[in-house]
Each structure stands twice: as structure tokens, then as C-alpha cells.
Design a binder for these strands. Structure first.
Lengths: 325, 325
DNA sequence: CTGAAAGCGCTTACAG
DNA sequence: CTGAAAGCGCTTACAG
């Protein structure tokens, strides 16, 4: 039985089958109060029976609205990003909006293409969960539809709302936690120059100074961690900029024969699935992911409702203490 | 500087700015040979300058084609699925098609919604990377646009093409590998009733019989693995139905004080990022992910080109031996 | 409650 | 090479 693809039925087909005008079908389908209950039910039944489905392109073209929210992420491989997407999706759905997702690796031009594609598709708003999208791409996109950035940009982009967590504070929570346990040689693994990485590094350094300790910042690549863990002067605790790199540190600790947390405490950031899977379970910093998704969608609808001033929302993270430190 | 959202420029605006008719702009934009080089360049420059972007809904409505491929996955959290998506995307892009992604957890109705949504959007084809989409939903979707299933369905769905790996063979590769190392008590952890799970279990059982060994199948939940690893009669090797569950087994082995692979060999399936991250690095079965994406898109374009008979492509997996067994 | 009509932004013959 | 016109499938006043 080969799939026979016939032209999909239109409003006109439904109208013909129901013996009414096509306007009436349209009205009935969207529950217009001017259509009697009996008529509406009859029309719905006919529509269902002929397999009618509205054409979103026709509707979007006519309405100028698509009820679509575009979400752009750099990478499907990063659990922090995909977990954010899920929360945006839940929030959008609650508002009657559908989400279309696009991802584009860390190549700026590919991400820019994706942003433009979603714009061409006619999304009513755009949520960007990637700090790799250039500011001018965001600005251009915002001329067509509101854009909200989940996460940090290097500096605020005029016209773009944002929601992110307070990375400095998150880093400080980690430092205080480790210092309170008596650690004095607390290293920070962070080679990132992205805004969040920079903020966490700054938070670490400030907090270390505040508790009277000396900062030690290292990068993962190429042998940063191995060198860090070698020799007698090694740290007793490592704070990594995110869970992925914390797992790398755990890996190196294992190689070096160090017990975690006895010989070395390890703390991550983001509280992703990796933290919950790691051995030992990773102490980490949790962002308010659910709230971030909800707020992102609220910021979008706020703009659609006419708000003109930029909003930058900063949420407080919290420390999740598990077995690793 | 609040983002001023003015109505986006249309073909008509470009035409006015360039002092030509709107048909000519349309022709020029799509590189019609009937437009002189000079005129084309001038029009492109004007379009660019006024910030013109074509409306995909208008184009789709007119053309009946969107140049969009929809991809549906159950979960963004499963690396096997997201890695497949990346390969589909690369293949689609090479054909000038764009990918829009939708995900919907394992709830059948939510997945069905997503499939319908993508259909409403007007995608030219659908790639389904989830065995949780009911057959009737696939069939309905296929009336609008070709559908290809990446992975297995319980039985072939008429009208739907598919590409998947030979799970029975993959399982047999694992059994033979372990048996060749002298293992005699090789257990299989697999509580899945999904098509792939069932096939891997069957492959395991058949291969065990072929090498003259007795099968031991256990489920992960709730304490299956812990019980399996306890006591003197425990297996010396465990083959898990996928990398995720193999990591669970590694976890339990650690709890039970077993050294891997000395006390217990562990093998997974899928060769995801989890396998490459696990300690010790996981021996696993690799599907031809790149080829799967490419073939999926080829099957789609084949249908669009008019092919009417169903194609079911089965690819050979291969064993990737790492440190765990 | 119902139907004829206009128009969203495009593409595509068709006539010059 | 150029322009007027029709039509994709919808929604939305508007007149009955």
C-alpha cells in the first residue's frame, strides 16, 4: 500500500462537504460565538472526517502571527542547554504557543543562519540559549520579532531582554562552601572567555579574596588539569566552571589515583544530568531552570504586548551539596 | 534604544526602492536567467539595503513546498537521539533543505501533537527518531508528506520508509567478543519492550545458544542489577541494551566493589558520548549514524521524486572495543 | 446565523 | 527585459 499523497483538503472542501460557506467553517473551527452549537459540531465532525488540517502558512500569512516561538541553541550535546529548552517549551505550551527548535554548533555563521531561518519562518518570538550568537544578529532579528537571551551576553544588547543566573554569586557560594570545610588550596578550572565563564571566574576570585585565600585558575586544555593535580603542592579542592569540566577533573583525579572527596573535593556548575550521574555524585550549583523558561516566555509575551523598555532578569542560583565535595 | 518593530519590507517595497516591478524582484532574487546581471545585482543590493527577507509562509503557500524537513525525537536527553539528529541535519543541509526539530517525551499524545504540528507547518518530509510514535500517527502524517522512520517499528508500517541498524547482529557481535575472551556467564540487562530492545535481546539469546552458553536476562529496575551482581554465582560479563544502562551497570559494579573489567566486563550499545566519557571507557556497538542521516534524507527525496514502494534499509553495526570488556 | 469579497506576500504564466 | 494579473489557503469585516 504505497502512501497516496493527494492534495490536502482545504476549508473549501470542508465547506462543500458540510454544505455551508467557507467563512462559516473558519468561524466554526475557531469557536466563534456567532456560530450555533449544533452547526459548529456538525462542521467539526465533517472537518475531522475529511481529514482537514489548517494550513499554518496560510494562517500566518493572513494573521501576521504564527503562534510559534523559535528556540536557538548552540549544541544538542550540552545537557544544560537541552534542559533549558525543555523548560521554555513547557512555558510556551502553557501560553498556547508552539516551539520550533534550531541548533547550530558554535559556528557564528551557522547560528546566524538558524536565527534568520526561524525569522523567515515567521516565529512570533525568539529565545536564544547560546552566547555564541553575535550581538548584531540578535539586533537584526529583533526588528522582526522580540528576542530574549537566556544566559549572558558580554554586555547588554539594546532591544534584547535577557534572563540569566547570577554567576558571580554562584561561584561565591562554592568558594564559601569549600572554605568552610577548611580547604585553603582551592583551584578554579576555567578556560572559557564566554560571558558566563568570565563571570564565574570573577566570582571565584572575588570570593577567594574575601575569605583571604589565593586564587589559582587553570584551563582544562591541553594538560592543565593533569599538571594541576600532579606534585605535592596540588590543591585540595577544585571548582570547575561547569559540570562537563568537573567530570573531566573527576576523570583526571581517578588517573592520578586521588580519592574524591578525601584527597580532592570537586565541584561543578549547572546541576545537569552529568552531575547526577557522576561518581561520586557531583556537588554543583543549580540555576533556576524552570523559572528561566517561564520568565523567558513572559518576557516575549510582554514585548508582544507592547513593552518597549529592556528587561534583564537575574536569578539567584543555589548550591547543591552531594558527595564530591 | 527600544527595538522598533515596523512591518517587514515586502517584495513591493524592494520593487519601489529599486524602481522596478515586483515580479522582476522575485525573478532577480531567485537568479532567474532572464534577468540581466546588472539589474540583478542592483536589485540584490537594494533588497539587502532595505533589509528584505522573503516570507516563508507566503512562499510555502504559493509553492506548495516549504523546503523544510521536520525531525521528531522523543527526548533531548538521550545522546543517541540527538547525535542522529545532527547527522540528519547535515544531510538535509547538503540538499538545500532546512531542519526544524520537535521533541515530545515518551507520551504518545504529545509526540502525536508534534508530528501534526510539523505537518501543519508544511514540512516537505518528516524524519521520526522515536519508536514511541504510534503507527496510525505515522500513517496519517504520511498522507501529507513522506515519513521516514529512523530506528525500528514493531512491524513495518505500510507507506513508511525506514532505516535502522541490525540489532540482532550487533548483539551477536558482543556475545561472540565476550565468549572469545573466555566468559561463560554473560548476562544481558534489558528491560525494554521497544522494538530495538526486543531485537537486541533476541540477538543475544540466539548468539548465546550458538556458542553453547545459557542466557541470563535481567532488567535494570528496580534492583535487577544489584541482585545480579551480588552473590558468588554472579556473571563475569554484562551486556547492556544501551550505553545509558551500561553506565548504570558500571555504577552498580563500583558500589559492589567490583573491578571493571577484571571482575566484571561491561559492554553497551550505541557508542554515544556516554561511552566515551565512562570510566573505564565503554566497549560498545556503533551504529552507522552518519549513514543513517544521509539515507534518511535520501529516502525522503526519493519519495518526493515519486517513488511509491516502501524501502527498509538495514545497516551493519560494528563493535568498538574499549577498556570495559 | 450565512455568503460574497478583499487581501496577507509570494510565484508564475502571459502579453508586451 | 518588464508589468499586470491570477491564485495559493486562510481570516475578517461587511452586507444581508
Amino acid at each position: 500500500m504505497p502512501a497516496v499523497r493527494r492534495p490536502r483538503p482545504t476549508l473549501l472542501d470542508v465547506a462543500a462537504a458540510a454544505g455551508v460557506s467557507k467563512s462559516l467553517v473558519s468561524l466554526a473551527l475557531r469557536g466563534d460565538p456567532g456560530v450555533s452549537e449544533r452547526t459548529r459540531e456538525r462542521i467539526l465532525a465533517v472537518a475531522d472526517q475529511v481529514g482537514y488540517r489548517p494550513s499554518l502558512s496560510a494562517r500566518t500569512l493572513k494573521q501576521g502571527r504564527s503562534m510559534l516561538v523559535g528556540v536557538v541553541i548552540s549544541s544538542l550535546a550540552n545537557p544544560y542547554h537541552t534542559e533549558i529548552v525543555a523548560s521554555v517549551e513547557d512555558a510556551a505550551e502553557a501560553q498556547g504557543l508552539s516551539v520550533v527548535l534550531a541548533h547550530g554548533s558554535r559556528e557564528r555563521h551557522r547560528l546566524a543562519d538558524r536565527v534568520q531561518q526561524l525569522g523567515d519562518l515567521g516565529v512570533d518570538g525568539l529565545v536564544v540559549v547560546s552566547s555564541w550568537v553575535p550581538a548584531e544578529v540578535l539586533t537584526t532579528a529583533a526588528r522582526r520579532a522580540p528576542v530574549v537571551m537566556v544566559g549572558r551576553t558580554a554586555e547588554p544588547v539594546p532591544g534584547i531582554d535577557s534572563v540569566n543566573n547570577d554567576d558571580e554569586h554562584g561561584a561565591a557560594l562554592v568558594v564559601r562552601h569549600l572554605a568552610a570545610q577548611g580547604h585553603e588550596r582551592i583551584a578554579h578550572v576555567n578556560g572559557s572567555r564566554r560571558p558566563a565563564g568570565t563571570a564565574r571566574r570573577r566570582g571565584y576570585e572575588d570570593a577567594m579574596a574575601a575569605v583571604g585565600l589565593e586564587s589559582h585558575v587553570r584551563t582544562v586544555e591541553p594538560d592543565g588539569v593533569a599538571e594541576l593535580l600532579a606534585g605535592p603542592g596540588r590543591p585540595t579542592a577544585v571548582f570547575a566552571r561547569n559540570d562537563v569540566e568537573a567530570c573531566d577533573v573527576l576523570d583526571h583525579a581517578l588517573d592520578a589515583g586521588l580519592a574524591v572527596p578525601a584527597d580532592l573535593a570537586v565541584v561543578g556548575y549547572d546541576d545537569t544530568m552529568l552531575a547526577r550521574r557522576a561518581r561520586p555524585r557531583l556537588t554543583t550549583v543549580q540555576q533556576q531552570r524552570e523559572v528561566m523558561g517561564t520568565r523567558a516566555v513572559e518576557l516575549l509575551t510582554g514585548r508582544l504586548g507592547g513593552r518597549a523598555d529592556d528587561v534583564h532578569e537575574v536569578l539567584e542560583p543555589r548550591l547543591v551539596v552531594r558527595a564530591s565535595g
